[in-house]
Lab assay of single mutants.
Amino acid sequence: MATVKFKYKGEEKEVDISKIKKVWRVGKMISFTWDEGGGKTGRGAVSEKDAPKELLQMLEKQ
């Protein structure tokens, strides 16, 4: 499965696309949330040019 790689608060992170729940556009950035388990929700953002095609497809479906 595809993953999204991004930096959050200076830390490199990687999230499996299948865990992503919500995707939206903020200017030229793609923001998203995912389920971290245990009732926690993670947040992240990646530039439109660095976003994997699967993430962009999720954005178009909404």
Results as ranks from 00 to 15, higher is better:
Met1Ser: 13
Met1Pro: 05
Met1Ala: 08
Met1Val: 09
Ala2Trp: 02
Ala2Phe: 04
Ala2Asn: 09
Thr3Cys: 04
Thr3Asn: 03
Val4Arg: 00
Val4Lys: 00
Val4Thr: 01
Lys5Asp: 01
Lys5Met: 02
Lys5Ala: 02
Lys5Leu: 02
Lys5Phe: 02
Phe6His: 01
Lys7Glu: 04
Lys7Asp: 04
Tyr8Lys: 02
Tyr8Cys: 13
Tyr8Ile: 03
Tyr8Arg: 01
Tyr8Leu: 02
Lys9Pro: 01
Lys9Gln: 11
Lys9Tyr: 09
Gly10Gln: 02
Gly10Glu: 02
Gly10Leu: 02
Gly10Tyr: 02
Glu11Trp: 03
Glu12Thr: 07
Glu12Leu: 13
Lys13His: 09
Lys13Tyr: 12
Lys13Leu: 10
Lys13Glu: 02
Lys13Cys: 06
Glu14Leu: 04
Glu14Ala: 05
Val15Phe: 01
Val15Trp: 00
Val15Arg: 01
Val15Lys: 01
Val15Thr: 03
Asp16Tyr: 09
Asp16Met: 11
Asp16Glu: 10
Asp16Ile: 10
Asp16Gln: 13
Asp16Thr: 07
Ile17Pro: 02
Ile17Thr: 04
Ile17Gly: 02
Ile17Gln: 03
Ile17Glu: 02
Ser18Arg: 07
Ser18Met: 13
Ser18Phe: 15
Lys19Leu: 14
Lys19Ala: 07
Ile20Ala: 01
Lys21Ser: 10
Lys21Leu: 14
Lys21Pro: 03
Lys22Gln: 15
Lys22Glu: 13
Lys22Arg: 13
Val23Tyr: 11
Trp24Gly: 03
Trp24Lys: 03
Trp24Glu: 03
Arg25Lys: 10
Arg25Ile: 12
Arg25Trp: 07
Arg25Thr: 08
Val26Ala: 11
Val26Met: 10
Gly27Arg: 10
Gly27Gln: 14
Gly27Ala: 15
Lys28Gln: 09
Lys28His: 05
Lys28Arg: 07
Lys28Thr: 07
Met29Glu: 09
Met29Ser: 14
Met29Gly: 06
Ile30Glu: 00
Ile30Cys: 06
Ile30Tyr: 10
Ser31Leu: 05
Ser31Cys: 13
Ser31Met: 07
Phe32Ile: 04
Thr33Asp: 06
Thr33Ser: 14
Trp34Glu: 00
Glu36Gln: 08
Glu36Lys: 10
Glu36Asn: 07
Glu36Phe: 13
Gly37Pro: 06
Gly37Ser: 08
Gly38His: 08
Gly38Val: 08
Gly38Ser: 10
Gly38Met: 06
Gly38Trp: 08
Gly39Pro: 13
Gly39Arg: 08
Gly39Ile: 10
Gly39Met: 13
Gly39Asn: 12
Gly39His: 05
Lys40Ile: 12
Lys40Val: 13
Lys40Met: 12
Lys40His: 12
Gly42Met: 12
Gly42Asp: 13
Arg43His: 11
Arg43Tyr: 10
Arg43Ser: 09
Arg43Leu: 14
Gly44Thr: 07
Ala45Pro: 01
Ala45Ser: 10
Ala45Trp: 14
Ala45Gln: 10
Ala45Tyr: 15
Ala45Asn: 14
Val46Met: 11
Val46Ala: 09
Val46His: 02
Val46Asp: 00
Val46Leu: 05
Ser47Gln: 11
Ser47His: 14
Ser47Cys: 14
Ser47Tyr: 10
Ser47Ala: 14
Glu48Leu: 06
Glu48Asn: 08
Lys49Pro: 11
Lys49Met: 11
Asp50Trp: 13
Asp50Thr: 08
Ala51Gln: 03
Ala51Asn: 02
Ala51Lys: 01
Pro52Thr: 04
Pro52Leu: 04
Pro52Asn: 05
Pro52Glu: 03
Lys53Tyr: 12
Lys53Gly: 14
Lys53Asn: 08
Lys53Pro: 12
Lys53Asp: 07
Glu54Ala: 06
Glu54Asp: 05
Glu54Leu: 06
Glu54Lys: 04
Glu54Ile: 04
Glu54His: 06
Glu54Val: 08
Leu55Gly: 00
Leu55His: 00
Leu56Tyr: 13
Leu56Ala: 08
Leu56Gly: 05
Gln57Phe: 12
Gln57Pro: 04
Gln57Asn: 09
Gln57Thr: 07
Gln57Cys: 13
Met58Gly: 04
Met58Ser: 06
Leu59Lys: 02
Leu59Pro: 02
Leu59Val: 10
Glu60Asn: 14
Glu60Cys: 15
Glu60Leu: 10
Lys61Met: 12
Lys61Val: 13
Lys61Cys: 15
Lys61Tyr: 13
Lys61Asn: 10
Gln62Glu: 14
Gln62Cys: 15
Gln62Tyr: 03
Gln62Thr: 10
